[in-house]
Design a protein around this nucleic acid. Structure first.
Lengths: 201, 201
DNA sequence: CCTACCGATCGGTAGG
DNA sequence: CCTACCGATCGGTAGG
């Protein structure tokens, strides 16, 4: 039990901190994620936790990055095997709904929560959340444009409008699941997305 | 400047606390609304503030009630003169978008923020937020059913589904305005709602 | 990675 | 409505 650990051990510890940090922040928010709570949960000292990041803001950014890895793996990577265009857009929507329905993050979508927590507070955390959303939005819009170009969606389709409405359905689903614990919302979200993507009701 | 004030003065003080509390909580969240901050802003002592409510939770509930009064006045009361059914539903949507666009609460929709902050924390605040949303949802659904019954919307319309999609559009608008400061989203939300209400694009 | 601190602030109480 | 407190906890630092 020497106080100095190897590089591999340090990386393992860092990873464990982030995993626990994502779980806590998902429920309590990124500001409610305190260094003391994290240390207590992991059986470490506060300074032992903080030493891996340097400041609370750096910890928040690292936790946000880790949550982004989870979202990408659960939604984007699951849909990537599908053919570009409408098929992939449908696969993304299915994986997105599943990600919310399964409660991958116990407190609901990590990024929607972080967006509401930080949208009024300038700083690096806010910038990171905004950039993450913009990347996601652009990725969806690209698939939508491909679908239009391939004739899979009407030529008059406004890709930006389509993505706005898909985002709205995902947000309404997240809200209904987290606040009202209403599983019927899954069907509503699916129908909202499908009616936008030209599926039959 | 006697320490004991009249009943009218005490009510005025309470009202001033709530007004300031709504402004702070809109940006910092209901948990970030601290008694010390409130006291400093108002030039009062902490115990002077707390005396009006008894506990922080009671303060949060009172602030939530006050915010509900604002929402009702800004959205529901503005739309109430319209005829029941589709006309009123359209008026509600217009007032709802305007409420978000004008930034009636500086931090965006108070209730969406409160929902995300408290959906994972059981208690009276969570219950109040949930009840408020359910009341609003039911009010919208009632107008939607009236519109269907009057033949203003297709007979096959699922009122619950319609309201789900209107809520999604409002949430996507709130998100785009607060996180991305994207005024184009106003047009997107209007179009999403209108296409649901049978308007021409 | 630890112990042992720091000043600031939290919600809340006692007593007037 | 005030002053004067309480114990707990916050983020962070010094030094090893």
């Amino acid at each position: 039990m020497s106080p100095r650990r190897s590089v591999a051990e340090a990386l393992g510890t860092r990873s464990a901190i982030l995993e626990r940090g994502v779980a806590i922040a998902s429920c309590e928010g990124l500001e409610g994620l305190t260094i003391g709570r994290l240390a207590a949960d992991l059986g470490m000292s506060k300074s032992g936790v903080l030493g891996h990041f340097g400041s609370k803001e750096a910890l928040q950014l690292a936790v946000l990055d880790r949550a982004g890895d989870v979202f990408r793996a659960e939604v984007w990577e699951r849909a990537r095997p599908a053919a570009p265009g409408l098929a992939r857009l449908r696969a993304i929507c299915a994986a997105w709904i599943s990600y919310l329905e399964r409660g991958v993050f116990p407190g609901g979508c990590f990024f929607v929560a972080a967006a509401h927590e930080f949208d009024g507070r300038p700083g690096a955390v806010r910038d990171s959340v905004e950039a993450g959303f913009e990347t996601w939005r652009a990725r969806l819009e690209k698939e939508a444009r491909r679908a239009v170009d391939a004739g899979e969606l009407p030529a008059a389709t406004d890709a930006g409008q389509l993505v706005f409405e898909l985002l709205g359905a995902a947000m309404a689903l997240n809200h209904a699941l987290q606040l009202h614990r209403d599983p019927l919302a899954v069907t509503r979200a699916r129908q909202a997305m499908e009616s936008r993507l030209g599926g039959v009701a």
